[in-house]
Amino acid sequence: MATVLQFLSTYGNELLLKTWEHLLISIIASLLGILVAVPLGIALTRFPKGAGTVMGTLGIIQTFPSFAILAFFIPIVGVGKIPAIIALFFYSVLPILRNTYIGVTGVKRSLLEAGRGMGMTGWERIRYVEVPLAIPVIMAGIRLSTVYLIGWATLAAYIGAGGLGDYIFSGLNLFQAKFIIAGAVPVTILALLTDLLLGRIETWVTPKGMRKMKEAA
């Protein structure tokens, strides 16, 4: 305990700054992934023949090592937070895209026909029928992607983007376990808290009828 307090008294402000940097990088990449993947996933449900190609391509990109993606963008945009966010963005897209596609295609055709019979336009069916009913599946993809990004963001320190990865790399280079722990423990806490928060948001945005069905089950 004394060692922890001593470490916090020495590096407390720096630890808060790096935690903020880490969270900022992760959240921006995740938000960009949501902005791109959710509309694209919905669009692919209208063009199912192209869905396999797009998801296959993104799946191949996800097999690339994280360091390789980070290194690829260095000659293009340099080092720092921007290439880290871009690399993490590519990793965030596939889980959100796949879950959006699965969630929307899983909506019962009878409900869509009912919406069409009520005179809803294509956009209105997306907004009022498909997305609300698919939101639990979409949110599951967002939760998975964001939690993964928080872990992967530790590698951003490799290209000077800051974050808690700085402590982990410093600890490995200096053979100082306290720095490794100072980086790893907050990352774990951030991931758990983020998953909990997104779980609450998922419950909040899920239509009441679906919530009651889940509770009953």
Results as ranks from 00 to 15, higher is better:
Ala182Leu: 01
Gly12Val: 00
Ala43Glu: 11
Ala134His: 06
Thr154Leu: 00
Ala156Pro: 08
Leu5Cys: 09
Val187Lys: 07
Phe67Pro: 07
Phe64Trp: 09
Ala217Ser: 12
Ile42Gln: 10
Arg211Cys: 09
Gly80Met: 03
Thr154Arg: 08
Gly165Phe: 01
Gly199Asn: 02
Glu21Pro: 10
Phe47Ser: 08
Gly160Asp: 07
Val38Ile: 10
Pro39Met: 02
Lys49Ser: 11
Ile42His: 14
Tyr91Glu: 08
Leu97Met: 03
Ala182Thr: 03
Ser30Met: 10
Ile181Val: 10
Glu202Cys: 08
Ile27Asp: 09
Ala184Thr: 12
Gly106Met: 03
Leu31Glu: 13
Leu149Pro: 05
Leu198His: 09
Gly59Met: 05
Asn173Tyr: 14
Leu190Tyr: 06
Pro39Thr: 05
Pro207Ile: 03
Gly199Leu: 00
Leu58Phe: 13
Leu133Asn: 10
Leu149His: 03
Asn99His: 05
Ile181Gly: 12
Phe175Leu: 14
Gly183Glu: 11
Ala68Leu: 04
Leu16Val: 05
Leu193Arg: 10
Met139Ile: 00
Ala29Glu: 04
Leu196Trp: 14
Leu149Phe: 05
Ile201Ala: 03
Leu32Gln: 11
Ile135Phe: 13
Met210Gln: 14
Pro186Gln: 05
Met139Cys: 04
Ala157Trp: 06
Ile135Gly: 01
Ala71Cys: 03
Ala134Gln: 06
Ile69Trp: 08
Gly41Asp: 01
Ile159Pro: 07
Arg46Tyr: 15
Phe175His: 15
Met213Arg: 15
Met139Tyr: 04
Leu144Met: 12
Phe67Glu: 12
Thr45Ala: 00
Gly56Met: 02
Phe73Gly: 11
Leu190Arg: 09
Arg211Tyr: 15
Gly122Arg: 15
Gly183Thr: 10
Ser110Pro: 13
Pro83Arg: 04
Lys49Leu: 07
Ser26Trp: 02
Gly199Ser: 03
Asp195Leu: 03
Ala29Ile: 01
Ile85Asp: 09
Asn173Cys: 06
Tyr101Asp: 02
Val93Tyr: 03
Leu32Gly: 13
Leu32Arg: 11
Val79Glu: 09
Ser170Gly: 13
Ala51Gly: 03
Leu5Pro: 11
Lys212Tyr: 15
Glu130Cys: 06
Val79Thr: 09
Gly50His: 13
Thr63Ala: 07
Leu88Asn: 08
Val205Met: 06
Thr194Val: 01
Ala191His: 05
Leu192Val: 09
Ala216Thr: 02
Ile168Gln: 07
Arg211Ile: 00
Ser9Arg: 15
Val185His: 02
Ser170Ile: 04
Tyr11Gln: 13
Leu88Ala: 04
Ser9Asp: 14
Leu32Asp: 12
Ala182Gly: 06
Gly106Val: 02
Ala161Ile: 00
Thr3Ile: 00
Gly183Asp: 10
Phe90Gln: 12
Ile61His: 06
Ser92Met: 05
Thr188Lys: 11
Arg211Ser: 12
Leu111Met: 13
Thr203Ile: 00
Ser66Met: 14
Leu58Trp: 10
Ala140Phe: 09
Ile74Ser: 08
Met118Thr: 04
Gly103Tyr: 11
Met55Trp: 02
Asn13Pro: 12
Ala2Gln: 15
Val79Gly: 12
Ala184Gly: 08
